[in-house]
């Protein structure tokens, strides 16, 4: 029995190893093609670039120049980091307020947050983009409150779920010892909320970094592009697509994600599980 089981596991390992290779193949294929001369990419996507097909980093240089990749990277990074910080800070405070103050406002806000989670973006996209335009929120700084507003639903909901589990006595003790609510929140509640903060951070980062439609409609894209917008821009209107530059930019877009994934893999997977259980 023991021997049979081990043999069985060995076959499964090989099977999964093969599937894993197939799994990363699309990304490897893009990486291979990013070093190929552009005319060969659609004609011979599966051949290895050698001799006259091989162009070193030409595609990268051309792509970076055409879409100003590093500007787009900076914008994406700025928007993602500050939006997520704003979401974590503001919604955790709001969720604590909602959970601790028993009023009509609290109940109403909670219900609205729940409700907003099922509303698809298309429902509000036109009016949101016009409103953001009227309020001059079309810069990377301006888009932060928009993300805070649209991302608040899920974040408030998740924080509320966790705050309910914190015993009231801890906070009361802090208050009796002379903390005002702000001190109580930052010195007592927020440290307890840390695991939820990580979960919300992971989920919101994945969303905002990859988001295309919201920044495309809200930002003044002549001046500020994020990475997804820049890549879509490369496709342009009606002309033929520069496949070489496209492949190179796809690689550059994927690299930071893989680095991020490798660095915080444990948190990402735990965050996804925790987020799913609460959601």
């Amino acid at each position: 029995m023991g021997v049979r089981k081990a043999k069985h596991g060995w076959i499964l390992t090989i099977l999964f190893a093969l599937i894993s290779i197939a799994w990363v193949f699309p990304i490897v294929l893009v990486a291979i093609n990013s070093f190929k001369k552009k005319v060969y990419i659609s004609r011979q996507p599966f051949s290895i670039p050698v001799d006259k097909m091989f162009v070193k980093f030409e595609n990268y240089v051309r792509g970076i120049e055409r879409i100003h990749f590093f500007d787009a990277f900076k914008n994406s990074l700025f928007i993602t980091v500050f939006s997520v910080v704003a979401i974590i800070l503001c919604t955790s405070m709001c969720a604590w307020y909602i959970s601790r103050v028993n009023s009509k406002f609290s109940k109403g806000m909670y219900c609205l947050c729940l409700f907003s989670m099922i509303v698809p973006f298309q429902m509000v996209m036109f009016t949101l983009s016009k409103l953001a335009n009227m309020l001059h929120l079309y810069s990377p700084v301006g888009i932060i409150p928009v993300y805070l507003g649209f991302g608040a639903g899920l974040a408030v909901f998740m924080f509320c779920g966790f705050v309910k589990g914190i015993p009231l006595e801890i906070e009361e003790a802090a208050m009796i010892d002379g903390c005002n609510p702000l001190q109580t929140f930052f010195k007592v509640v927020l440290p307890i909320l840390k695991p939820t903060c990580i979960t919300v951070t992971i989920l919101q980062t994945m969303w905002i970094w990859n988001d295309y439609l919201l920044p495309y409609l809200v930002l003044d894209i002549k001046r500020w592009k994020t990475i997804p917008i820049a890549i879509q821009y490369l496709k342009g209107g009606y002309g033929s697509v520069d496949m070489g530059a496209m492949m190179a930019m796809l690689v550059l877009a994927i690299i930071p994600i893989i680095v991020f994934y490798m660095a915080c893999q444990k948190y990402i997977i735990e965050g996804v599980v925790a987020g799913a259980v609460k959601g």
């Binding site: 503001c90 405070m93 709001c94 949101l128 929120l137 409150p145 928009v146 805070l148 608040a152």
Partner: peptide
């Protein structure tokens, strides 16, 4: 505590 989120939520979701 609640006002920043409320304002952003109003702009980002409720009014649209």
């Amino acid at each position: 505590f609640a006002l920043p989120t409320l304002v952003a939520f109003t702009i980002g979701f409720l009014v649209p």
